[in-house]
Computed example of a mutant assay.
Amino acid sequence: MRSQLISLTTGSRETVHDITAECDAFAAASGGDGLLHVFVPHATAGVALIEIGSGSDEDLLSALGDLLPADERWRHAHGSRGHGRSHVMPAFIPPYATVPVLGGRLALGMWQSVVIVDLNVDNRERQVRLSFLSG
């Protein structure tokens, strides 16, 4: 198995951060078939496959805002207002995804992108572990 850790800055607001290009480059270096596993080693971020740029990314953040409001209801209450919801979010958007790789190319659907979903405005720096398992 080949593995690489990449770093990214998600910013100071809730975000859907596209990492498809980084995943493409990592898969291309394999040159073969297998599985790309994407994992964020954080308790407050998730990985999703979603269409972006058409409003779906904003819709996702809006839906998460409705489902997990940034208010004072959360028992995990340190940090910014509603921070506890960031710790609940990975139960809905898990911190991992696996994508087939064929001939060194991600086998994503036409409109699918690999994204990091991050509601935690207190932690801007993220790491993502990309792992390739040959098939």
Rank of each mutant, 00 (worst) to 15 (best):
I50A: 04
A91H: 05
P90G: 07
A77R: 11
G55H: 03
R75H: 07
R81C: 11
L67W: 00
R129K: 14
M110F: 11
H37M: 09
V88F: 00
S12R: 15
Y96K: 14
H78C: 03
G55N: 08
S12D: 15
R129S: 01
P94I: 09
L106R: 03
S86W: 03
V16W: 04
L64H: 11
L119H: 02
S7V: 02
G31R: 05
A97G: 06
F39L: 05
V117E: 01
G32Y: 08
W111N: 06
Y96W: 13
L106A: 07
R73T: 00
F92W: 04
S80V: 04
S131F: 00
H83S: 10
L67T: 01
T15D: 10
G84V: 06
A107N: 08
V101M: 02
G46C: 00
L60N: 09
E14Q: 15
I50V: 12
L102S: 14
S131N: 01
I116K: 06
E125S: 14
R124H: 14
D33M: 02
Q127H: 12
N123H: 11
A28V: 04
S54Y: 03
V47S: 01
T9S: 14
C23R: 00
V101G: 03
T44W: 01
H87N: 10
P94F: 08
E72G: 13
I50D: 00
A43P: 07
G11S: 05
D71C: 12
H37F: 04
A45F: 03
A91W: 09
L49A: 05
M1E: 04
T15I: 14
I6H: 00
V128L: 04
S30Y: 12
R129M: 07
V16R: 10
E58F: 10
G82H: 04
A91Y: 09
E58M: 13
T15H: 07
G53L: 06
E125D: 15
R13A: 14
G103W: 03
G31M: 08
H42P: 06
E22Q: 15
L49Y: 02
V128C: 09
H78K: 03
S12I: 09
S62E: 15
H87I: 08
L64T: 12
L64C: 14
T98K: 01
P100D: 05
L108P: 08
D24I: 12
D66R: 15
E22Y: 05
L60S: 08
I52N: 03
E22F: 06
L108N: 10
D59E: 07
M110K: 12
A21L: 12
A21W: 09
P69T: 10
E72Y: 02
P95R: 07
V38M: 06
Q4A: 13
H76F: 09
T15F: 09
E22P: 10
H76C: 09
T98R: 02
A97I: 00
E125H: 14
V99Q: 01
G109Y: 03
S80P: 08
